[in-house]
Design a protein around this nucleic acid. Structure first.
Lengths: 332, 332
DNA sequence: TTGGGTCATGAATCCGGCA
DNA sequence: TTGCCGGATTCATGACCCA
């Protein structure tokens, strides 16, 4: 069956793989490379940075995590708090990233190009995860089917969270979507099996012991309970992880910050210690922090000064310093 | 922003609204209309049946639920169990529906045409829900954005279930996707607010009392706990509902049968008693049974004899009989 | 150290006021 | 009329304090 025969079409789609694309803002001309422990941080436009990495990191990335803006058509601010003279808390906000686009086509062209560039850096056993919301996920999935090939699609992961209620005549949105693709479905993938707790109904009937399917002359009989402890159910594709609490110590003030628990689960299951994790939309640096904590190397990219400063402070708090700049590689 | 500028493209997409489409099998030539209490059952090709309904039911449907095949490229069998001579259980299987397609384009053309036809039957306050899996949902969503207009998109509902764990080097799939669109975003929608239980952490801190945000001259002050009981948190778009247990009383043997709890939630929140619910892929009749139980009228359509027989038995068990055939309406 | 009670506050959505 | 802005609403949850 020719599965990839259905694709997205829009005026100007050809821009997708052209360097001179319509980005919301002028990008800084050069990419600054900085070391940080076993990690690397690139300050500059991520498309340009990914192109440069092709010379040094092709085929070396175990996990690429992309958390692009969600096509909100707004500028998002970072909020910093400090104590003023009278002990009063003073709030300041700086633009962290610009999520305004000419139209959906421009958004998809920009994202698609970066996905394709990041894909080139993946090891055969590697995978790439894109984090989106349920308004954009469908377009992005069809685009990724075209870029990767549909047989490389691995999972639609649902991140389910709880948050403040809003009055609306609709089911309230309480999930994000993570799309995972593999570089090469023929290669043995990186995979560290994780488990989640048994359902309450299972615990009531079976306790924490393993169940064993019993067959009676080809027919299914009542399962028996084994002496072995169950590890739990294999991790599913719906993850219940809390959003960052407003007063969480983890919170940096950077908008759209993701919880480290989410990234830790991805990194632990999809990479081994010592592997390299890539985040081209590094933002507050959650991916890099989680990777470092789990003994993985990392490559982070962002073009926003607020993002760079936030990440630097965050890694410094972990004892990792962004070192002095290396000479930027000449752009290709 | 011209949002609908991105659409799906495939060879032969023009077939979408043409009557002579590529269906996997020849469809029966006529549609048989049967009454059933306050309900209506149409036996025959659902595209033809929906066209016929345009003459009698245009603008009358509060909720259309479409549970099409998931592009599995297989024939799905219904299994019936009966006791044979020696008291032994004898199993028989009959083909229930054919889910083989020339390619994805043919599948989308067929489904899209039926979605467009069902849309015509919706009341202004009505909505249409398509039930798919995470492999097809993305294509269907982009198609529906084109049919309805993107501002009519209401929710991506995640149905999360638990099932027997399988060993696989991937996150196990434990969810289906339901896409909801509204006919007219300007009309006041049918909406009966439902609630789910408060989170454990909230119960621990606040009990079952409502919280109240307090503002002190524009600035945020400490929230207070009110005397009023909280109703719980408004229903979200991730629903945890068990699949039918293999031995459930509800189970009919029809493949792909959905739990009545899932349909009941949709019907209760999106329609009022006395409203009409439509299911063009009626299958085992879950939607019709749930609608009847909740005091809604229904219109069911299916072209499979197994489906019709299963539905008839199911409704009969509820005290509803499919009456003798009416004269089929002449096709347009 | 631990556990219970209290504190602080994010950000979706609606609505009313005002330009 | 329409569109923008800011106030009101409301759970969720880690931090913090104290015994």
């Amino acid at each position: 069956m020719p599965e990839s025969s259905v694709t997205l079409a829009w005026p100007g789609k050809a821009r997708l793989f052209v360097d001179d694309e319509a980005t919301p803002r002028a990008s800084p001309p050069e990419v600054a490379h900085t070391r940080c422990g076993r990690g690397l941080y690139l300050f500059g436009d991520n498309a340009r940075a990914l192109s440069e990495l092709a010379r040094t990191h092709a085929g070396r990335i175990a996990l690429a995590y992309l958390d692009p803006p969600f096509l909100t058509n707004r500028v998002h601010d970072a909020v910093t708090r400090s104590r003023g003279a009278g002990g009063k808390i003073v709030r300041a906000s700086r633009a962290a990233f610009d999520d305004r686009w000419e139209d959906r086509g421009a958004f998809l062209a920009s994202l698609g190009r970066r996905i394709a560039l990041a894909r080139e850096l993946l090891a055969p056993h590697g995978s790439l995860v894109v984090h989106v919301d349920p308004k954009t996920s469908h377009y992005v999935k069809v685009l990724m089917d075209e870029i990767f090939g549909e047989d490389c699609f691995a999972s639609e992961i649902i991140w389910r969270y709880r948050r403040w209620p809003a009055k609306t005549a609709n089911y309230q949105r309480v999930h994000d979507v993570l799309l995972r693709y593999r570089k090469d479905p023929a290669a043995r993938p990186r995979w560290n099996q994780a488990y989640e707790p048994l359902a309450a109904s299972t615990l009531a009937t079976w306790g924490t012991k393993k169940q064993n399917a019993v067959f009676d002359g080809g027919r299914r009989a009542r399962s028996s309970s084994l002496a072995t402890e169950s590890l739990g159910v294999p991790m599913g594709d719906v993850w219940e992880i809390g959003v960052l609490a407003p007063v969480s110590r983890e919170r940096t003030g950077y908008p759209s910050q993701k919880p480290e628990a989410l990234l830790s689960r991805l990194i632990e299951t999809l990479s081994d210690p010592g592997d390299l994790v890539l985040d081209p939309y590094a933002g507050s640096g959650t991916t890099l922090a989680a990777a470092a904590r789990l003994g993985r190397g990392f490559v982070g990219i962002d073009q926003s000064e607020v993002a760079r400063d936030t990440t630097r402070a965050r890694l410094a708090a972990m004892g990792l310093a962004l070192e002095a700049r290396e000479a930027p590689a000449k752009s290709a």
